[in-house]
């Protein structure tokens, strides 16, 4: 505290309030009994939490989002590993073009991607299917997975692999016993970041999801178009609670900073 002056302290406090206020308001509203969004209030109720039970499509959308995020992130990471090892450690023709290609989804507005995938999947007969969602999400989260995987591949000391080779290890053994364990923290971080982005994605997904393959954010978005009641706030409160619990658990087990920054096991 002593290093930060009072002005810095006020600034940080305001900043945190600015970040947290919408989340807190959502959580408050979730506990109101009214049939519309009311805030502030002095009456409390769990009515809208019970209401979630009457909308099983929210529950199934939640599980779909979870699976979609986990699966597309895992595939994106699996795809990133060879790409990152090639880009990070070899000079070859088309290397920059390859990097640009993998990073390009960051540059394209998700609305455009959504419309493009809608056309494309309809042609292929994948329109509105879960497979289509997974494919589209892989494209969108790939840059995030690749970024962190690449960072850990670039930071890898080649002489460690050379040491293993000189001790008689085959290429496969080096990959399995040395390279992969050393880039693993980057893979985990890349997966986590990709998952968060997938779980959050609504702009593109709203175009390609059909009734029955809606993700949680899409379901919520569609719901508030027709309704003004606080059901989405109670759903949000649940998501926030689950996220907070997951973050605490991760922090206990693994260290949050290490996860998000992508540090390796030995702190290098």
């Amino acid at each position: 505290m002593s290093r930060n002056g009072p002005i810095a302290l006020i600034y940080h406090t305001l900043f945190v309030i600015f970040m947290l206020a919408p989340i807190l308001v959502v959580c408050f509203v979730a506990f109101t009994p009214e049939g519309y969004l009311s805030f502030p209030t002095d009456r409390w109720s769990l009515r809208w939490f019970y209401a979630i039970g009457r909308y099983p499509e929210f529950i199934s959308a939640f599980w779909r989002s979870l699976w979609l995020g986990a699966l597309s992130s895992a595939i994106a990471v699996a795809f990133s590993v060879p790409a990152a090892l090639a880009i990070g450690r070899h000079r070859f023709r088309g290397r920059d073009a390859m990097t640009a290609l993998f990073m390009s989804p960051l540059m394209i507005p998700h609305v455009v991607l959504g419309i493009a995938f809608l056309r494309f999947f309809t042609e292929l007969g994948l329109g509105g299917t879960f497979v289509g969602l997974v494919l589209a999400h892989i494209v969108v989260v790939l840059p995030f997975a690749l970024r962190l995987t690449l960072a850990s591949a670039v930071g890898l000391d080649r002489s460690i692999e050379h040491a293993a080779i000189s001790l008689g290890a085959s290429d496969r053994t080096v990959l399995r016993r040395i390279t992969l364990p050393l880039v693993l923290p980057g893979l985990i971080s890349g997966w986590a970041l990709a998952f968060i982005n997938s779980f959050d994605e609504v702009t593109m997904t709203v175009f390609i999801a059909a009734p029955g393959t809606e993700t949680l954010p899409v379901r919520m978005f569609l719901y508030i178009q027709d309704n003004i009641d606080p059901l989405v706030t109670s759903v949000s409160a649940c998501v926030i609670a689950i996220t907070a619990a997951a973050l605490i658990a991760l922090d206990r087990a693994y260290g949050l900073e290490r996860l998000l920054v992508g540090r390796s096991v030995d702190g290098r």
């Binding site: 000391d157 002489s159 050379h162 040491a163 040395i178 050393l182 096991v265």
Partner: peptide, 8 residues
């Protein structure tokens, strides 16, 4: 020169 020990 850098020892190149396996850190894990």
């Amino acid at each position: 020169q850098s020892y190149a020990l396996f850190p894990h």
